[in-house]
Deep mutational scan, measured.
Amino acid sequence: PDDEWKERLREAEEKNNWKLFEELARKAGVSEEKIEEWKRRWS
């Protein structure tokens, strides 16, 4: 299951679909801290 969400995150990233990325990350149990960090790195 871990690989599956990583794959989906990669797809979201490729499409630059931040909303989807964020949603998937939350569902995968990624901390808000980590998500914010990704946001900063991404923008």
Rank of each mutant, 00 (worst) to 15 (best):
E14S: 12
K15G: 09
L24H: 03
N17I: 12
E7Q: 12
A28G: 05
V30I: 14
K15N: 14
K15T: 14
V30S: 01
R40M: 10
E37I: 02
E14K: 13
E14H: 14
W18A: 01
R40G: 12
L9Y: 08
I35L: 09
L20M: 11
D3K: 09
E37L: 02
W38L: 13
L20I: 10
G29T: 00
I35A: 00
E36Y: 04
E33Q: 09
P1L: 15
W5Q: 05
E22F: 10
R10F: 07
R10Y: 07
L24G: 02
K6T: 11
R26Y: 02
K15C: 11
D3P: 11
D2Q: 09
K19N: 11
R41D: 13
W42I: 05
F21S: 00
E14T: 09
R41F: 14
R10G: 05
A28P: 00
L9D: 04
E33F: 03
R10N: 06
W42N: 02
E13I: 15
I35G: 00
E36N: 07
A28H: 07
G29V: 00
N16L: 09
E23V: 04
E13M: 15
E37W: 06
R41E: 14
K19T: 12
S31I: 02
A12L: 09
A28V: 05
S43L: 15
E13P: 06
L24M: 09
P1E: 13
R40S: 12
K27P: 00
A28T: 02
I35Y: 02
K39Q: 03
L24I: 13
S31K: 03
V30L: 11
E33N: 05
E13D: 08
R40I: 09
W5F: 06
E4P: 08
N17R: 07
A28S: 06
K6Y: 14
E4A: 11
N16H: 14
W5C: 13
N17H: 09
E4L: 12
E11Q: 11
W42M: 08
N16V: 06
A25L: 15
E23Q: 07
P1H: 12
G29Y: 00
A12W: 07
R26N: 01
R8Q: 10
E37M: 03
E11V: 05
R40P: 05
N17W: 14
A12Y: 11
G29A: 01
A12G: 04
W38V: 09
W42H: 05
S31E: 03
K15W: 05
E4S: 11
S31F: 01
W5T: 06
R41W: 15
E22R: 01
R40A: 12
E7G: 08
E36R: 08
N17L: 14
F21I: 04
W5V: 06
F21L: 06
K19W: 10
N16A: 06
L24K: 03
K39T: 02
E32Y: 04
D3G: 09
R26P: 00
W38P: 00
K34M: 15
D3Q: 11
E32D: 08
K6P: 07
L24F: 08
K6M: 14
E36T: 03
N16P: 04
A28L: 13
N16W: 10
L9M: 13
L24D: 02
R10M: 11
S31V: 02
R41A: 13
E11F: 06
V30N: 01
L20P: 04
R8P: 05
W38N: 02
D2A: 08
K34Q: 15
E4R: 10
E23S: 05
E11P: 04
L20E: 14
R41Y: 14
E33W: 04
F21G: 00
K6V: 13
E32T: 04
A25V: 05
W38D: 02
E22Q: 03
I35F: 02
K34V: 14
R40L: 09
K15D: 10
E37A: 03
L24P: 00
E11M: 10
L20H: 12
E32P: 08
F21T: 01
A25R: 00
W18E: 01
E4H: 13
S31P: 13
D2S: 12
E7R: 10
L9N: 03
L9C: 15
R40Q: 14
D3V: 07
W38Q: 03
L20D: 13
W5E: 04
G29R: 01
E32H: 04
L24S: 03
K34Y: 07
E33K: 07
E11T: 08
E11Y: 05
W38S: 03
K19C: 14
K27I: 11
R41L: 15
K27M: 14
R40C: 14
E14M: 14
K6S: 12
W5D: 05
K6F: 13
E14I: 13
R26F: 03
P1C: 15
S43I: 14
K34I: 14
E37R: 02
A28W: 09
A12R: 03
R10T: 06
K6E: 14
I35V: 02
E7W: 05
D3L: 11
E11W: 10
K27T: 05
K34R: 10
D2Y: 13
E37G: 01
S31W: 01
D2N: 11
E23I: 07
E22M: 06
E32Q: 07
E22A: 06
I35R: 00
G29N: 03
E32G: 03
V30W: 15
K27C: 13
W38E: 07
E32M: 06
D2M: 10
I35Q: 00
E23W: 13
E32V: 04
S43V: 13
E4M: 10
S43H: 15
E13F: 15
N17F: 14
E14P: 04
E14C: 15
R40N: 14
E14N: 11
E32W: 08
E11A: 10
E23A: 07
E7D: 11
D3A: 12
K19M: 10
R41G: 08
E13A: 15
G29F: 01
R10I: 09
P1Q: 12
L20G: 07
E32A: 08
S43C: 12
K39Y: 10
E22V: 10
R10L: 08
E23M: 07
R10P: 03
P1D: 09
P1I: 14
D3M: 10
A12K: 05
E22K: 01
E22G: 01
K19V: 13
K39F: 09
L9P: 02
K19I: 09
A12S: 06
R40H: 11
A25E: 00
N17A: 07
W38R: 03
E23D: 10
A25D: 00
K27R: 11
E13V: 15
L24T: 06
V30F: 15
V30Q: 01
L20N: 06
W42P: 01
E14G: 08
W38F: 11
A25C: 08
K15Q: 12
A12M: 11
K34W: 14
L24E: 07
V30E: 01
E13R: 15
K19G: 09
F21K: 01
W42Q: 03
K15M: 12
S43E: 13
W18D: 01
L20T: 08
E22N: 01
D2K: 10
S31Y: 00
K27V: 05
E4Y: 15
A28N: 06
L9A: 09
R41P: 01
D2V: 10
R8A: 14
E32L: 06
E7V: 10
E4K: 11
D2L: 11
R8T: 09
D2P: 12
W38I: 14
A12V: 07
E37D: 09
D2I: 11
A25I: 06
E4G: 10
E11N: 07
E23H: 04
N16Q: 09
K6Q: 13
E13L: 15
W18L: 04
W42Y: 08
E11L: 10
K27F: 07
V30A: 03
P1A: 10
E36V: 03
D2F: 15
F21A: 02
E36S: 06
A25S: 02
E36L: 09
E32N: 06
E14R: 13
S31T: 06
K19Q: 12
W5P: 04
W18N: 01
W18P: 01
K6A: 13
L20V: 11
E14V: 12
E11I: 08
A28K: 04
K6I: 14
E22D: 03
S43Y: 14
K27E: 10
L9G: 03
E36W: 06
L24W: 15
A25T: 01
W18M: 05
W38C: 15
E37N: 02
P1N: 11
D3I: 09
R26G: 01
K15L: 10
R40V: 08
A25M: 13
W5L: 09
W42D: 01
E14F: 14
A12H: 07
F21M: 04
K34H: 06
E33G: 05
A12P: 03
E7N: 10
E32I: 05
A12I: 07
W18T: 02
K39L: 10
E33R: 05
F21Y: 03
E13H: 15
A28I: 08
V30M: 15
K39N: 03
R41T: 08
E23N: 04
E36D: 10
E4I: 13
D2T: 12
E7P: 06
